[in-house]
């Protein structure tokens, strides 16, 4: 059923599932943040896998080589450029989340989400 080539993609999806599980089910703020990071990295991993090709070389054009020739046996460089951006965005989100979590801890004295409930539903 599942070929070996598909396995990495499926594992990336499992990783995403673990992240979403942590975000939705965990009560501890820090664990939610970790879940968020795991989910983001699962998607990044998936993106970079999309550009991978078995036995592909790094997409760096050496002198005298034609771009079309290189494209035939190199990995796709575009997803790599994309995830660089996505990682930076993820860093900003993580930093903001940690800063908020610290402030929340100052106010409530806990990281437990079931005790952080001043808002009415």
């Amino acid at each position: 059923m599942i070929s070996r080539g598909m396995l990495p993609y499926l594992l990336a999806m499992v990783l995403l599932g673990i992240g979403v599980y942590a975000i939705t089910c965990k009560k501890n703020l820090i664990k939610v943040i970790v879940g968020m990071v795991v989910a983001e990295y699962a998607v990044n991993l998936f993106l970079v896998l999309l550009g991978y090709r078995a036995g592909g070389v790094a997409p760096i054009l050496s002198e005298g080589e034609k771009a079309a020739d290189l494209a035939r046996h190199s990995v796709d460089p575009l997803p790599q450029a994309l995830i660089l951006t996505a990682i930076v965005i993820g860093l900003a989100i993580t930093a903001l989340m940690v800063a908020l979590a610290l402030r929340i801890h100052e106010r409530y004295g806990t990281f437990d989400l079931s005790e952080i409930r001043k808002l009415k539903g």
Partner: peptide, 11 residues
């Protein structure tokens, strides 16, 4: 407190 909590949820 409420604002931080709302922001975290939103985030």
């Amino acid at each position: 407190s409420e604002e931080l909590e709302a922001s975290f949820k939103y985030l």
